[in-house]
Computed example of a mutant assay.
Amino acid sequence: MVAVNTAKKIIAEQCVQLPVVQVDLLNALNYALAEDIFSPIQFPAFRQSSMDGYAIYWEEKANPLFIQAAMPAGTEQPLLLQKGKAIQVFTGGPIPDGANCVVQKEWVTVNNSTIEIQLNNNIQLGDHIRNIGSDLQKNTLLLQKHTVIQPSHIALMASAGITTVKVLQKPSVGILITGNELVQPGNTLSFGKVYDSNAFTIQAHLKKVGITQMQVRYVSDNLQETENSIKELLLHHDIVIITGGVSAGDYDYVPQACINAGVQQHFHKVKQRPGKPLFFGTQKNKLVFGLPGNPAAVISCLYQYVIPAIDQICGTHTIQSTTAKVSTAFQKNIPLTQFLKGYLEGNTVKILPAQASYQLSALTNANCWIELEESDTQIESGTEKRVYLFL
């Protein structure tokens, strides 16, 4: 049996990033960049108006000006502004050559084909003109390698004309649900049976962190069937997550089935609650997690081990933690690291009821896990503890 920090260190040492892939810009959301991104253009690429109005020679602002033309957004041919004249311009559209000021239309009186500017307004040389490259210069560093792409990053790259990017590939995941007692939701529940929630729980969490390639298989508590299923999933996936069958019962075949399937065991059992029977192994660069079958233990292990491993492989940072003061005292009677369902508000965290590993009800009211260290016994109100925020 290993300590929590030891288990995390062992897993981290086995995580290997997958080959870089090139994806379309819209499909790059929540991926980590595999290289620095530089602007291939300068932006704006032309002098651009930031206001609907009239482009003029600033020194002629006191004179009536004849309207020479209009240059709406999208105009493809440049124009030279003639002396004594004004050209109507629009937000985002080009500025005529020679013009050195844009007067917003609210400050202009139009009389047939001429304009007069209201001089009581403060009109400055260069007003409302976006100069070439004022936002981006060509070859400017837009985004650094390992940046996790957000919608604002996609907007920035699209504005620079970028359509594809190289990113760190996300792993495919095989999910194996074991247990004679399990019935898939939608089927009749007979005596001694329970509905499986783990397949749904795992898939929901993985989707939340951007994993799209998943396969779920069900197997009864049978050594050979379990071994065959593990072998099959390892053929097609980078990570295999197994639930149930990892403890020491007569029908707990997962650790032996993993070994029979060619998985190298790195540890089995962690000094924690929930999730004490956790199994971890590898086959070459593929990761195998054996999680307990109890639903809360599955979720706790996802947050502490599985998703951090995915983050390391993908270069992402989805699990966030902080510290907070517990609102009430708590007696811990076990010499194990304990993860409790909690509700964080400000810098205070409340320990919720229904902490047993089979109880899902408290999770609907929780927004974090509270970590109590192995050496903790009596936790006094106001004690500061590490909390892991829900996705």
Rank of each mutant, 00 (worst) to 15 (best):
Met1Asn: 07
Ala3Ser: 06
Ala7Leu: 10
Ala12Thr: 06
Val16Ser: 12
Leu25His: 05
Gln42Lys: 14
Ile56His: 09
Glu59Cys: 10
Glu60Pro: 04
Asn63Ser: 14
Pro64Arg: 02
Leu65Met: 03
Phe66Asp: 01
Gly74Arg: 04
Glu76Lys: 14
Leu80Cys: 04
Lys85Pro: 00
Ala86Asp: 03
Thr91Arg: 14
Cys101Ser: 11
Gln104Met: 12
Gln104Ser: 15
Ser113Lys: 09
Asn121Val: 10
Asn121Gln: 15
Gly133Tyr: 09
Gly133Ser: 08
Gln144Val: 12
Lys145Gln: 10
Lys145Leu: 05
Ser159Cys: 09
Ser159Met: 15
Ala160Val: 04
Lys166Glu: 12
Val183Ile: 12
Gly192Val: 00
Tyr195Trp: 14
Gln203Gly: 01
Gly210Met: 07
Gly210His: 01
Met214Arg: 00
Val216Tyr: 02
Thr226Trp: 06
Glu232Lys: 13
Leu233Trp: 06
His236Lys: 13
His236Val: 02
Ile241Glu: 05
Ile242Arg: 00
Ile242Tyr: 06
Asp250Gln: 13
Tyr251Asn: 13
Ile259Cys: 11
Ala261Arg: 00
Val263Cys: 13
Lys276Asn: 14
Gly281Gln: 00
Lys284Val: 03
Phe289Thr: 00
Ile299Arg: 13
Ile307Cys: 04
Ala309Thr: 03
Gln312Pro: 04
Thr322His: 07
Thr328Asp: 08
Ala329Lys: 06
Asn333Gly: 08
Pro335Gly: 11
Lys341Ile: 03
Ser361Asp: 09
Cys368His: 13
Thr377Asp: 13
Thr383Ala: 11
